[in-house]
């Protein structure tokens, strides 16, 4: 992903994670603007205003969870080309499979250290377009440190 004037949305109900993410992002790729929402409904509302360049999506959220959002996005003609990066605590195989099948572009399990988070975010933004769009190969779907 190029980082030039990049606008992304992070949907995550966990405030700590939102803070860490914003902080790590500002250090990893300073030109990326991060907007955050705390649940799926907010996310879908925000999408109707302006399309972001990418969405980082937590799965476990109240009201409308990440899986539902993913489904809506990938089945909407306007939204379906927006890259969706799953950003979840879980590294459960079933969840990886189902999000891949629903059309998510990348999968990151939330790292347990700030350094690792920075590393992985950097990695995301150095990927070439064809490496995640429309979807990478299954083996390259889960991004590792």
């Amino acid at each position: 992903m190029t980082t030039h004037n990049y606008q992304i949305i992070l949907a995550d109900d966990d405030e700590d994670d939102r803070i860490f993410f914003k902080e790590a992002m500002s250090e990893a790729a300073s030109s990326v603007t991060v907007k955050t929402v705390s649940d799926g409904i907010e996310l879908m509302n925000m999408l109707s205003n302006k399309l972001p360049d990418a969405i980082f999506l937590d799965l476990n959220m109240p009201f409308k969870n990440g899986q539902e959002c993913l489904h809506e996005i990938k089945n909407n003609r306007r939204y379906k080309n927006i890259p969706v990066v799953i950003y979840s605590t879980s590294s459960n195989v079933d969840q990886i499979n189902s999000t891949f099948q629903a059309g998510a572009n990348l999968y990151i399990s939330k790292p347990d250290s700030y350094l690792k988070l920075k590393v992985i975010l950097k990695k995301v933004f150095t990927l070439k377009c064809e490496e995640y769009k429309p979807q990478p190969e299954k083996e390259k779907f889960v991004l590792k440190y």
């Binding site: 700590d16 860490f20 605590t89 879980s90 347990d112 250290s113 700030y114």
Partner: peptide
Amino acid sequence: SHDLQEPLRKIKLFSNRIFEK
């Protein structure tokens, strides 16, 4: 197991943050 992971990860995250910074 799943839900216990979450606070645990936070503990690790914050302690690592302190450790690193």
